[in-house]
Design a protein around this nucleic acid. Structure first.
Lengths: 263, 263
DNA sequence: TCAGCCAAAAATGAATGCAAATCTGAGGGG
DNA sequence: CCCCTCAGATTTGCATTCATTTTTGGCTGA
């Protein structure tokens, strides 16, 4: 059936997977011999530039130095400008007419909005996961959950975070919905750019609460209770957002409203 | 058509920004919609090309004739290619390495996925709307609902659709979340491109069911029952998707002929 | 007749060129 | 003293050009 055939090839998603390559390639990039998925300077530049901004190498509100980045990446302005247009459409930068690109400034308000969207996407993912998840995938999440609990007991923040993120990612994967995955990854990047990690370090109460919420999440997922899981996940993100906001209120002067130190 | 009307856009140039203070003063930069009034061939081409594709002027899977569109729009390849990159990132077209752009083919599977994402976004919008909506905005939705019911009784499909869409749009607006609105609009475009309108014409049962669901939606919104409304909205979209799928199974004619040019 | 191969033609991807706009900063006038 | 003006340097936006790559068409040979 040709229908299934043409569907089977779609595997394109703008996920910032490639690791940060900080090398300078003035002339030619080492082309992989037979790897088909690679070409176009444009894609390479797009991924690198996105990482460059998400990682916070440019201050919020600062100009994106076109000329500089060109020689930094060893390319001409054409592919760089193409990448800028795409990043602008993703909401990472602003393109001002005849005035160049600026790193988008993310205010408190927008962070709240982004958290809510993430909550909605995770809620959706949870609901779909309940419909489609396999026993193996569920078992994997259960394992991660128990690992996470171990890290929690040992107060191993790093391990806890790794498991936490892995669980949420698995839920999204289990939803098995390509547009959802892509959108989720995009918003995760936008939030990550704001240097936000709802750090439980300064808030032990929140940590315990989060752990309890994860118990509920696992329970709802085990029962394949879609609507319930959806609701829990949204509230989970809401609480995470609240914790982040509280932390921001306690220790301002991070990412969001920082002063733009231009070059 | 007037293809070279780019001059006419910048009719009057307003005051050239009194003392455009550089970004040294991050105190308050009111994001004025100033940038929207002026600019760029690129944005113009992007919007036009997007419409061109969404409206279905290019067959799915067909090559996007770069050269042709250039003279069609009266521009060079540079801005057109920039627009193509953006459209590719939006998922409207595929960019094949060294082989140009092709209109993305949307399969049944992807339509289902897109419907689910729309459901998730509407569910989120409903939940947020319950938190934020004003009495006036609610009253407006209530009015639209009753109008819609009138159209339903009169079997006025066109009027029904208009009210239906207006209601859903109002809910998204009431959520008052910019990233959500943008994402919603983007997915709506992607779905619209598939020429899908869950046309109730051929399915009177679905019509009545949809009307009952809208009663529930309004009721939950009146009570500001966020979680409940969220659930109803998702299931509403699910049923819409199902109706669309049933219709597609009954009359498979994808892409070629515009079967339902609803509104 | 038809598969295979090679050269011409066209298209793509990226670099460069150029006009217009913006930014810089020095000088003049109120 | 501060604000305004204006010429030069820089930057931006788009067009054009150049180097590969793909596609097309024709020819050879079985």
């Amino acid at each position: 059936m040709t229908l299934a055939d043409r569907e089977s090839e779609g595997a394109d998603s703008p996920i910032p997977l490639p690791a940060a390559l900080s090398d300078r390639a003035p002339a030619r990039l080492p082309a992989k011999p037979r790897e088909n998925l690679v070409h176009s300077l444009h894609d390479e530049v797009l991924a690198r530039l996105r990482d460059f901004i998400v990682e916070g190498n440019l201050a919020p509100g600062a100009r994106v130095p076109e000329r500089l980045l060109c020689e930094r990446f060893g390319i001409s302005r054409t592919p760089l400008r193409e990448a800028l247009k795409v990043l602008a459409s993703e909401g990472l930068i602003d393109l001002l007419p005849n005035r160049g690109a600026r790193v988008r400034r993310i205010g408190e308000r927008e962070i709240v909005e982004l958290f809510d969207v993430m909550g909605g996407l995770e809620a959706l993912a949870g609901r779909l996961a309940c419909e489609r998840i396999s026993e193996e995938a569920y078992a994997e999440i259960e394992r991660l959950h128990h690992d996470m609990y171990g890290h929690y007991l040992r107060r191993d923040l790093h391990g806890y975070f790794a498991c936490n993120q892995a669980i949420h990612d698995r839920i999204v994967q289990a939803a098995d919905n390509a547009p959802l995955s892509a959108t989720y990854a995009s918003f995760a990047g936008r939030l990550r750019r704001a240097r936000y990690s709802a750090n439980l370090d300064a808030n032990r109460d929140r940590w315990g609460e989060a752990m309890r919420e994860h118990e509920e999440i696992l329970d709802a997922l085990r029962r394949r209770a879609g609507a319930e899981l959806s609701d829990i996940l949204f509230r989970h993100l809401r609480n995470k957002r609240k914790a982040a906001a509280d932390r921001e209120a306690a220790a301002p002067a991070l990412g969001g409203v920082g002063t733009a130190e231009d070059a």
